[in-house]
Design a protein around this nucleic acid. Structure first.
Lengths: 192, 192
DNA sequence: CTCGGATGTCTAGCGATGCTAGGGTCGAGC
DNA sequence: GCTCGACCCTAGCATCGCTAGACATCCGAG
């Protein structure tokens, strides 16, 4: 059985290598540069090997997205738990979210701009995505205010953060005033 | 000179036809289906004709985006002017914005998701884009609240709307509760 | 009215993309 | 040591955005 186990381990390693390489390439040169040929060359295998791990390019993007969702959830939780009081917690969460989007643009694109073939807000939503929303809900639910459903409030706050992240990164918003936008968002939306 | 004028008129007509056809095709089958070949076939010309009007596919997307920006500005202004009082005006604006995004997904994509080669928030930003922001500013500026820059407030409100629009359309948010999200957004963000 | 030139359009093709079929190689297990 | 199956690579398909060069067409001058 040892042989089979070794092969499975090597396969898993290679799969991680594919995802990591795709992410790295996307972060370096943008997703347009992530072609199956280039990706295959970087991992030092031929193209068809990619298709023995993933159905196609979309699934590779999806894998990067899931990885990113887990990291984003971690970042949000870490920032929230390091802050004292609801106001500071929500502000820290917002900064952590926008900071993640700014520092990992390609991963953020994989999660929200590109088609990674992932199901959201449905029954078969992958765990990391649900957990990412849960991480937001943990800190945002407590400032939803009376009579407002915590989930609904989280959705709206999340949408605002997502809008700020994408519009800023696409050059639609001047990049300098991020902090002031966060302050405004937190002060107005959250009920403290 | 009449001959030259006629030719220029025909050229302008054809250019409008290209943009309208691209938009129609994108709205029917998504932007992936808008290939230069299919587009050329639909307008009953060969591919190179497209390139005598636009530098490439990006510019065609950009042209659709500009058209959409003008329509969005109109829709927002119409909704705002039909409402009485700041509260109703802002709510109507928000609904009009989200409604436009939902009814014209391909155009909205051209404006914000795809690369149309357009410059935002810069010196050479095309007029329709600046005017679109201005349309938002007209109604949102008056509810920014004391000490908050109207432009900054508009950016944040816009980002929230954009986030709601994109996340809803991408299936990231359950589609039913749009109205409740709008209510929450308006009640919290706007200072009445 | 004719003819040269410019204007406009099309056919054909280039490099690159995502993806796949089919053959070959190498190692595991009897 | 041999056989058979799992694995991987070469080669190729259809399609993409884009362009060069040939061909036609129509305008304006003589």
């Amino acid at each position: 059985m040892s042989v089979k186990e070794r092969k499975e381990r090597e396969r898993a390693d290679r799969e991680r290598l594919i995802v990591a390489t795709a992410r790295e390439l996307a972060e370096q040169q943008g997703w347009d540069a992530v072609t199956t040929r280039r990706l295959a060359e970087r991992i030092e295998y031929s193209q068809p090997v990619l298709y023995s791990h993933f159905r196609g390019k979309r699934e590779i993007i999806g894998a990067v997205a899931l990885e990113g969702a887990a990291e984003l959830a971690d970042a949000v939780r870490a920032a929230a738990s390091a802050a004292d009081g609801p106001r500071a917690r929500v502000a820290a969460l917002a900064r952590a979210y926008l900071d993640f989007a700014a520092r990992n643009p390609a991963v953020y694109d994989a999660m929200f701009q590109l088609d990674g073939g992932l199901a959201f807000a449905e029954e078969d939503t992958p765990e990391p995505l649900k957990d990412g929303f849960a991480a937001l809900l943990e800190s945002l639910g407590e400032v939803a205010g009376d009579g407002v459903h915590p989930g609904l409030f989280t959705e709206v706050f999340w949408a605002a953060l997502h809008g700020l992240a994408t519009l800023t990164r696409a050059g639609r918003l001047p990049p300098g005033d991020t902090e002031r936008r966060v302050e405004l968002l937190v002060d107005r939306l959250a009920v403290l």
